[in-house]
């Protein structure tokens, strides 16, 4: 018996470990997500108690007392257990679930973020105040801690869904229609978001990082994000910039402060400062940049960027040095 209990506990621990991490609704780091996690536990415990009661009763009448009940008891069981009890239980749960909805929909203040679901990446724009020029970024969302931020959602051609499980519930993104969501992170850290509505071949590879920062750090970061791209710092990187323009990358990508002004792909002005690459499918280092540019199709089936297989190793490493330097 003891041996069995001992063998059992590591398994239980492993199962519980599956509930933590950067993309878990059960390990909340935001106000809305923690309310939803509570809702989950209440429903789970309620369902477990009900399941045990129903099956326990079934066990009792078939195995422990397998004789017919008195008419009165049977009627009480059917009416009480079949109508009255479920009515009050379900009413309570429904009222509880409805009562948390208004707070989940409270609007955010301060810097607004507009996120557009593209194939298969995220266009991200920060709007410091209403009417201000948006600060364009991509594939990563930065948020100030302990502050409710309003996020406006849209989509390019297909329906996507925006979900950072550790911070809040999810919201669909539609072409031609604006939806909204507000998030209120309570813990500094890096969380993972994922497209939660099947949108095509690379749907599973459409993720992003949500970086929650101290409020003053966020303000400083946003100010930096607003600036044009830094000048290439080394000869290699300067070569890389020339190759970038030669190869026509600028037809799809914007690097503010250079001739590259293409709107079709992610803005690369500060791509070197992102934590990941290609909508969170690769880390963000020199090797990954080279890998991405040469093997886009292999890394992400269906991707809307051509693979640059013809680039020599030298050119590719220059290009990667340039991109990595775009902090």
């Amino acid at each position: 018996m003891r041996g069995r209990a001992l063998r059992f506990s590591p398994v239980a621990l492993l199962l519980l470990a599956g509930c933590t991490g950067t993309q878990s609704a059960l390990d909340p780091a935001g106000k809305d997500a923690s309310v939803l996690a509570d809702l989950f536990w209440v429903l789970l415990i309620g369902a477990t108690v009900l399941w045990l009661a129903v099956n326990g009763l079934f066990f009792y009448v078939t195995r422990i007392e397998p004789r017919s009940l008195s008419r009165r008891l049977a009627e009480t069981l059917v009416i009480g257990g079949g109508i009255v009890f479920p009515f009050f239980l379900l009413s309570g749960l429904l009222a509880y679930a409805l009562s948390i909805m208004p707070d989940q929909r409270l609007e955010g203040t301060g810097v607004q973020i507009r996120v557009t679901g593209e194939q298969w990446w995220w266009r991200v724009e920060y709007i410091p105040e209403p009417g201000a020029e948006p600060i364009v970024a991509a594939n990563e969302i930065r948020l100030p801690v302990d502050h409710r931020t309003e996020i406006k959602l849209g989509a390019d051609k297909f329906i996507h869904s925006f979900w950072i499980p550790a911070l809040a519930g999810k919201m669909d993104m539609f072409p031609g229609r604006e939806t909204r969501l507000a998030v209120e992170p309570t813990k500094v850290g890096v969380y993972r978001g994922q497209c939660a509505e099947f949108c095509g071949e690379a749907h599973a590879l459409m993720a992003f990082q949500a970086v929650v920062m101290e409020q003053d750090e966020f303000a400083a970061w946003l100010e930096k994000e607003r600036q044009d791209a830094v000048m290439p710092a080394s000869d290699l990187a300067r070569q890389g910039e020339a190759i970038f323009l030669e190869e026509g990358c600028g037809a799809c990508h914007t690097v503010r402060g250079t001739e590259a002004r293409g709107p079709a792909g992610p803005d690369l002005t500060h791509v070197g400062s992102r934590l990941s690459l290609g909508a969170a499918v690769l880390p963000s280092d020199r090797e990954a940049f080279a890998d991405w540019v040469r093997h886009t199709k292999r890394i992400k089936p269906g991707v809307k960027m051509p693979p640059y297989v013809h680039l020599s190793d030298e050119k590719l490493s220059a290009l990667s040095a340039y991109l990595e330097g775009l902090k």
Binding site: I83, L90, L94, A95, L98, M101, P102, R105
Partner: peptide, 22 residues
């Protein structure tokens, strides 16, 4: 009638709790 009575109550509960169209 019993089930309809309960159904009507459940359909109306959101009206009690939700104060906006959000």
């Amino acid at each position: 009638s019993i089930i309809s009575f309960i159904g009507v109550i459940y359909v109306s509960l959101p009206v009690l709790f939700l104060e906006t169209c959000q």
